[in-house]
Design a protein around this nucleic acid. Structure first.
Length: 1016
RNA sequence: GCGCGCUUAGCUCAGUGGAAGAGCACUUCCUUCACACGGAAGGGGUCGCAGGUUCAAGUCCUGCAGCGCGCACCA
């Protein structure tokens, strides 16, 4: 057990971050990320769920003014959009450059409605001419595709939707402060009023929802930490589909080991011993080559050389597709809880500020009625009192100054309802990280701040830190003081030979005028400012350094699981022994989140893959096929189910209904089945206990009954089937085999038949009966008591043999009840030293019965057929009772006319299972006309019913049986008369069909005879 | 759009070229001594549709239909 937030594990996570940072694989950048406006954090692409929704496509008219800026009502383009609210941030209209309809417009300007702003018309290949009007509005700050276009065409990035999902001041009066969906309505109304809305059509499209908070995500520009995935090539190649290489697991030989999957050596392995998956307890330690390992390592020709296998195979395709289309992983989250980013900044104050504000925010939730200002005040107070900001902080109402990490400030502002102060990015490339300061003239919660209003920023540093000075001055028309275009203009000016009349520094800074364009470029180009102000390391660099407030995506800790749990980065013995591991059991829904990333981390940090086999379970869904989820409330409480049915029942029932790789619709009935099964198992053991006698006695071959041999052969068959099922990861098949074997074969037939030996004392009348039986070894009356006791003990030994095997076979599926029964039955005392003892878990895993065993106990396969026929006779005999309307509890007399001599034991079993008052064995029985009869190759079974014979009914029943036989014969004959079949079918199939035909023909003849007798 | 599943009894689903299966539900009978959370006997199927390969197809191939899931920058 390991908790990823444990200190040791947490250190691993941070070390990995530092290592990847030093390799240059982790970087920080301003990117378009998936933003969750409810949780106010970035998300990875994998955390976004696409949901298909019915929406609308709004067609909006954008006027095209002429060169002189005059509007002609006939000059316009129509764009189609699903998100009208983003038009406030439009910076261009794009058409496909190959589109003759619009090509001539490229380079002209369009007038953005509502904002009355001129935006360029650009040409971009990305535009699909077929969709909508072939003319697209471009909102670089609020759409991933538009962002790329914005970069390509050097468009401004105007942020009109804030991190809270509300429109920013940039959105303009009347919209700022509105929720994005409210803004959409308002804008549509406004466009209608202005007659710029051409039409609305229904449109179905995909909307990304946050997996975390289930709100639509916003594409949002923000500064985040990213990871360029490591060891991608090796991870992509290590698993391959085996489809093309012939069916896997074709080795169905009865003696198949539990580990038929070869485990080839991996190139470049760290030298750690590959452990062979095995249910046997191996004495061998790491470094000792066990024979099992040697055998298993030898690959067969048909097997793939890929070192890893997926079960089921088809997920390889999904995996490979993802691996070959990797995008950098956004690993930072703006959350309170998680592993913190091990990066430190030497600007004091802001880290504490950030955390304090969040703290106050949390507390504020408990204090209804507190307004944002009070919260903010409280935050400032806390910060100042803490002394972390010292004198750098001044009264907010008159102006303040703080050294700050821009992203955190932006974030803190947003979280504090100070959305009217927004710092937004201005430019890509050199000034990508420059600050675009804007004011928002809409009414905010804090009057003093609203009326503020001038922001001046000093850009002193490059990449990541900014020293920002804010002073409160008068607002001028609510306009931003400068925008990126101004900046860019100034920059080109400054880069040019002749300095502009107004140096950029003066535009940007009040004092000191230390920042200049040249300095900016110098910093950005030549100086690694990160070294000066940023350190990536696990421990704090010392006084004055503050840690990045972001935390890491939870999967950034999970992907280290296979080795971080075993002491990495120390090369512990555990790690050496168990890495690479053998099997991963997980759900296919986290192939990307977890499996793929663990594989990459394994190669990157251990130099070898983390596991050899991946078993993908199905996903348990509700009855409607929906995934279980807290919000739907469709998830049953496992603890309640366990209380109601038991843990074993839940486990067994679920596994029984979950085939390899298929999802399962959860049904409590399955758990009920499990519960019923546990009950059956318990009672079957109780039956054995109630018989008393020695536990696990020796089995004497001479005394084995046909039923004993039958159940031992059936056990052998079940073990073989289960062994194969395990080897191929078909666990539901193993449970079904066990269920069938134990319930249908052991309980329904064998236990019932064993009562002929166990539970029925041999009385004089029965001995007389036996005298009349022609049997080779009929007991003499004198010896019968002793013999009965011996036979009884022998049957008990068989019961114990079968039960002790069954319990072990069931143990993986029913761990609790089997452990309890293992002890309760006394089997733990009987195991050889080191094999049984304190727990069933150490007992040897059952193996198929070997040749010696079969030979010694005379377990010839013919007993299966013989006993099957006997039981079939019983079933048919019971059917006779049923059809004769004889109540199940009424004892009646049967007559059996055997085709061959019958063993007394078999006669006894027949009598018992038929619940007969008596079973008369008469090879020469001459039945009365109309006596209900069963015909089998063991002989004929009659149910003589005095006064109850219904000739017509019996005739009808036999006719029906005859029809059945005829139809089976016809089918078999048709096959066997086909020369193609006889010449091409394999001999054993041919033989099967011939035998079948013969059996049905014999049966048909017997039925015919009986029908004739009935007429007679 | 691309990819992957699924379609078999009333329901939920196994089924690996060679007799169509299970659990639940249903009908009838049975509290006989391990178990009524049980036992016994039954009824119930054009294996989605159409072609093809094969001696043989629920199973392999192709196409179609319906359902589901993943991926994808068609605004």
């Amino acid at each position: 057990e390991r908790f990823t937030m444990d200190p040791a594990y947490s250190r691993c996570v941070q070390k990995v971050f530092v290592e990847l940072y030093k390799k240059g694989l982790i970087y920080r950048g301003k990117r378009m990320v998936n933003w969750d406006p409810a949780a106010r954090t970035a998300l990875s692409d994998e955390e976004v769920e696409m949901v298909e929704e019915d929406s609308f496509l709004w067609f909006i008219k954008y006027p095209i003014p002429d060169e002189a800026g005059q509007l002609d009502p006939k000059a316009f383009v129509v764009v189609a959009t699903t998100r009208p609210e983003t038009m406030l941030g439009d910076e261009a209209v794009a058409v496909n450059p190959g589109d003759d309809r619009y090509r001539h417009l490229i380079g002209r300007k369009a007038l953005l409605p509502i904002r009355d702003k001129q935006i360029p018309i650009i040409g971009d290949k990305l535009v699909d001419r077929e969709f909508g009007t072939g003319c697209v509005k471009v909102t670089p700050a609020h759409d991933v595709a538009d962002y790329d276009m914005g970069i390509r065409h050097r468009l401004p990035f105007t942020v009109v939707i804030g991190p809270d999902g509300k429109m920013t001041g940039e959105a303009g009066e009347g919209y700022a402060g509105l929720d994005r969906l409210e803004a959409r309505k308002a804008i549509v109304e406004k466009l209608k009023a202005d007659q710029l809305l051409v039409s609305i059509s229904e449109h179905r499209h995909n909307v990304g929802y946050s997996q975390r908070s289930h709100v639509p995500i916003e594409p949002y520009l923000s500064e985040q930490w990213f990871l360029r995935y490591p060891s991608v090539d090796r991870a992509a190649e290590c698993v391959q589909s085996t489809e093309a290489e012939g069916a896997p697991g074709s080795d169905k030989s009865p003696g198949a080991t539990l580990t038929p999957r070869p485990i080839p050596d991996t190139q470049g392995a760290t030298g750690a011993q590959a452990l062979v998956p095995s249910l046997h307890v191996s004495e061998g330690l790491a470094g000792q080559a066990t024979p099992t390992a040697a055998e298993s390592v030898a690959p067969s020709a048909s097997e793939s050389n890929a070192p890893m296998r997926f079960y089921p195979d088809r997920w390889v395709k999904t995996y490979t597709h993802w691996m070959t289309n990797l995008k950098d992983w956004c690993i930072s989250r703006q959350l309170w809880w998680g592993h913190r980013v091990p990066v430190w900044y030497n600007q004091p104050g802001w880290g504490a500020l950030e955390r304090t504000i969040q703290l106050v925010r949390l507390r504020g939730d408990e204090l209804p009625g507190t307004n944002a200002r009070e919260l903010r005040r409280a935050a400032w107070d806390l910060v100042t009192r803490s002394g972390l900001l010292g004198q750098r902080y001044k009264n907010l109402d008159t102006g303040w100054e703080i050294y700050v990490n821009r992203r955190s400030l932006e974030h803190a502002f947003a979280n504090e309802g100070l959305a009217n102060i927004r710092l937004v990015p201005a430019l890509p490339s050199l000034l990508q990280n420059a600050i675009h300061v804007a004011t928002e003239p809409h009414v905010p919660p804090i009057p003093q701040v609203t009326q503020v209003h001038k922001f001046l920023a000093a850009l002193e540093l490059g990449q990541t830190q900014y020293r920002v000075k804010f002073t409160v001055k008068e607002l001028r028309d609510g306009r931003k003081l400068y925008d990126h275009q101004a900046l860019e203009a100034k920059r080109s000016e400054a880069d040019g030979k002749s300095p502009g009349t107004q140096p950029l520094a003066e535009q940007l800074v009040t004092r000191p005028a230390s920042a200049s364009v040249s300095k900016l470029s110098q910093i950005a180009g030549d100086v690694n400012t990160d070294e000066m102000f940023t350190r990536c390391q696990v421990e704090s660099p010392g006084q004055g350094w503050q840690q990045d407030p972001d935390v890491l995506d939870t999967w950034f800790s999970s992907w280290l699981w296979p080795f971080a749990t075993m002491g990495w980065p120390e090369q512990t013995d555990t790690l050496k022994k168990f890495y690479p591991t053998t099997d991963l059991v997980t759900g296919p829904d986290i192939i990307f989140f977890w499996v793929a990333r663990m594989i990459m981390a394994g190669y990157e940090f251990m130099g070898d893959l983390p596991f050899r086999n991946v078993y993908f379970t199905g996903i348990i869904r509700d009855k409607l096929g929906r995934k279980m989820s807290k919000s739907l409330g469709n998830s049953p409480d496992p603890l309640e189910l366990i209380a109601k049915y038991g843990a074993d029942a839940l486990r067994f029932g679920t596994m029984r209904s979950a085939p390899l790789g298929q999802d399962v619709l959860f049904d409590e009935k399955d758990v009920e089945l499990g519960r019923n099964f546990c009950n059956k198992l318990w009672n079957a053991c109780r039956f054995r206990q109630m018989q008393g006698g020695e536990v696990q006695g020796e089995i004497e071959p001479r005394l084995l009954t046909s039923d004993d041999k039958w159940i031992l052969l059936k056990l052998d068959q079940a073990i073989r089937e289960i062994t194969t099922a395990f080897a191929e990861y078909r666990f539901n098949e193993a449970t079904q085999t066990l269920y069938r074997f134990f319930w249908s074969e052991y309980c329904d037939w064998y236990v019932e038949a064993s009562k002929a030996v166990l539970a029925r004392p041999v009385g004089p009348s029965e001995l007389e009966e036996r005298e009349s039986v022609k049997a080779e070894d009929a007991p003499t009356p004198q010896r019968s008591d002793a013999l009965t006791a011996e036979r009884r003990a022998n049957t008990l030994a068989v019961l114990d043999f079968v039960l002790s095997h069954t319990l072990r076979l069931f143990h993986p599926f029913l761990p609790f009840i089997t452990e309890e029964l293992w002890h309760g039955m006394g089997y733990h005392d009987d195991m050889p030293a080191g094999q049984g003892g304190e727990t069933i878990m150490f007992a040897p895993w059952p193996k198929p019965l070997d040749e010696d065993f079969l030979g010694h106990y005379g377990l010839d396969a013919c007993y299966v057929d013989m006993v099957n026929a006997k039981y079939d006779l019983v079933t048919q005999g019971r059917n006779l009772r049923r059809e004769g309307n004889i109540a199940a509890n009424k004892k009646v007399k049967f007559v059996f006319k055997p085709a061959n001599p019958v063993m007394p034991h078999d006669a006894e079993v027949l009598k018992l299972l038929l619940n007969a008052e008596a079973l008369e064995i008469d090879p020469k029985y001459d039945a009365k006309k109309g006596t209900p009869t069963v015909h089998s190759n063991l002989g004929e079974l009659y149910l003589p019913m005095e006064g109850l014979i219904d000739v017509a009914a019996e005739k009808a029943r036999l006719t029906k049986e005859l029809e059945r036989a005829e139809s089976e014969i016809a089918k078999a004959e048709q096959k066997l008369n086909n020369p193609n079949f006889t010449s091409k079918a394999p001999p054993h199939v041919l033989q099967q069909h011939q035998q079948r035909l013969a059996e049905w023909q014999a049966k048909r003849d017997r039925i015919k005879k009986a029908l004739e007798a009935l007429r007679g």
